[in-house]
């Protein structure tokens, strides 16, 4: 067994829940077809080497929920800021491109951080490597806000790190 069994089982449970949400048919035929599909997909995914700590869906814990609430608020605030800039006449933007050092350890945390940067309008992550993330921002204020590390400290740090 290449990967821990609980990763495989949690992926299967997630997929079967998704099937029930999509289908809405609760007769025996559809449920057995759903089980068969779930098993087939888990088998293919296992063959593809895709079930590792990055695909472990049981991480949807309280920490991540808190981060999503934080992110929702950030998205609304950033949207209002960008809309103001669109409708402000004259010179309304001051674009910046800079590298931000990363302190996050695991791959998934870094991906979540980069995607959160992209999701808030006004900041876009343009390149991600092991030490830094290159960010393009629409304004100097957004750049200063990112440099202060407020969002980086909100990302769940130990998300998905394999205990070795």
């Amino acid at each position: 067994m290449k990967y821990p069994v609980k990763h495989i089982i949690s992926l299967g449970v997630l997929l079967f829940t998704l099937w029930l949400c999509l289908s809405g048919q609760l007769n025996a035929l559809m449920i057995s077809l759903g089980l068969a599909s779930t098993i087939a997909i888990v088998a293919i995914t296992h063959r593809m080497d895709c079930i590792d700590h990055e695909t472990y869906p049981a991480h949807m814990n309280l920490l991540l929920l808190r981060f999503w609430l934080f992110l929702a608020r950030e998205i609304v605030v950033a949207n209002i800021d960008v809309i103001k800039r669109i409708f402000k006449p004259g010179k309304n933007i001051s674009p910046q491109l800079f590298e931000l050092p990363l302190t996050l350890k695991s791959d998934v945390s870094r991906v979540i951080y980069a995607n959160a940067i992209t999701l808030t309008p006004g900041t876009v992550s343009a390149n991600l490597d092991r030490k830094t993330v290159t960010v393009h921002t629409l304004s100097i204020e957004a750049a200063q806000d990112l440099s202060s590390g407020r969002m980086a400290s909100a990302v769940p740090e130990d998300y998905g790190v394999v205990k070795r």
Binding site: L11, L15, L18, L22, S23, A40, I41, I44, M48, C50
Partner: peptide, 10 residues
Amino acid sequence: FPVIALFAFY
């Protein structure tokens, strides 16, 4: 990948 494949089976 698993989500898209499950949608295909659905």
